[in-house]
Simulated assay, not measured.
Amino acid sequence: MKLLELGHRPALRIAAVPFSEWNQSANIQAIELNADQSAKELSPFLATLKLIVLNFPIFRDGRAFSQARALREYEKFQGEIRVQGHILPDQAEFLYRCGVDSVVLPDKANEEPWHRERERFRVAYQVSTQNESSFGPGLKRHIS
């Protein structure tokens, strides 16, 4: 497993416990949330969590984008959000804008396409969960 950092938050090296196996009384710092589980279920525990791993079970399932956005925007989660599963480099900027900090890649994956995609866009029309000034070089939010 290789961790690719998308933003300014360094990737943590801790193991995540699947939400379905999590004993809420245990002192767990990292949870793995499946696409069919609500980020809202973690609300009471977000202050103690340092990492939430979201899953893309198949390419056309984008619920992890919504989970990441909900964790950042509505639940105000300040820890690391990581994604794994069926994701592509051309989703890098969208993942980042939804609040994702890191991506799990196969060991032999080429990171260059991911870095290239993070620098690809210079204009954004939608509001991001990230600080607008923290985009890649030259990226501005377009307001019409």
Rank of each mutant, 00 (worst) to 15 (best):
Q84L: 12
N131T: 06
M1Q: 01
K108L: 02
D36H: 11
A64F: 14
K2N: 10
A64G: 15
A16F: 04
Y96G: 01
R97I: 06
F59W: 10
G62P: 13
E73M: 03
Q67G: 10
P137G: 05
R69S: 03
Q78C: 08
I143S: 10
R82G: 07
E75M: 09
N131G: 02
Y125F: 15
R82T: 08
D36C: 05
N34W: 01
A124P: 03
I28T: 15
R13T: 08
A39K: 11
A124N: 07
Q24F: 14
Y96A: 05
N131W: 01
V53K: 01
K140M: 09
Q37S: 11
R97D: 04
L4Q: 05
R141C: 06
L139H: 14
I28Q: 10
S43I: 03
D107R: 10
R141E: 09
L51F: 07
G138W: 06
H8V: 12
Q84K: 14
P57G: 03
E32K: 01
F65Q: 00
D90G: 04
Y74N: 15
R63A: 12
A15G: 14
L4P: 09
N34L: 09
E21L: 13
E73Q: 14
G99H: 11
V100R: 00
L4V: 09
I14W: 04
F56S: 07
F59M: 03
R63C: 12
A70M: 13
L71Y: 15
C98M: 07
D107L: 09
L46T: 12
E117D: 04
A35T: 13
G79D: 07
K40P: 03
G85Y: 03
E75R: 10
T129R: 02
F45N: 11
P137S: 12
R82Q: 11
K40M: 08
N131R: 01
P57E: 00
P137Y: 10
V103R: 02
E117V: 01
P57I: 03
N27V: 01
R118K: 06
V104I: 10
A70Y: 13
A70I: 11
Y74L: 12
A26L: 03
S144Y: 05
Q78W: 03
E111V: 13
C98N: 07
R63T: 11
L6H: 11
I81W: 04
S25W: 00
Q37W: 04
K76T: 12
F135N: 00
Q78A: 13
K76P: 12
E111T: 13
I14S: 06
L42K: 00
A124K: 10
S134P: 05
K2V: 05
R9T: 08
E5C: 15
Q78I: 07
L42Y: 11
Q91R: 04
K76L: 13
F59A: 07
D90H: 06
D101Y: 01
A30Y: 06
E21K: 14
G138F: 08
F135R: 00
Q91T: 09
K2Y: 01
C98R: 01
A15R: 15
Q126P: 00
T48D: 10
K50F: 03
F65C: 02
A30I: 04
D90V: 02
G62E: 00
A35D: 12
N131H: 06
E5V: 15
S20M: 00
P44L: 05
L3D: 00
D61L: 14
I31G: 04
K140L: 12
S38I: 01
E73I: 01
N110Y: 08
S66W: 01
G138A: 02
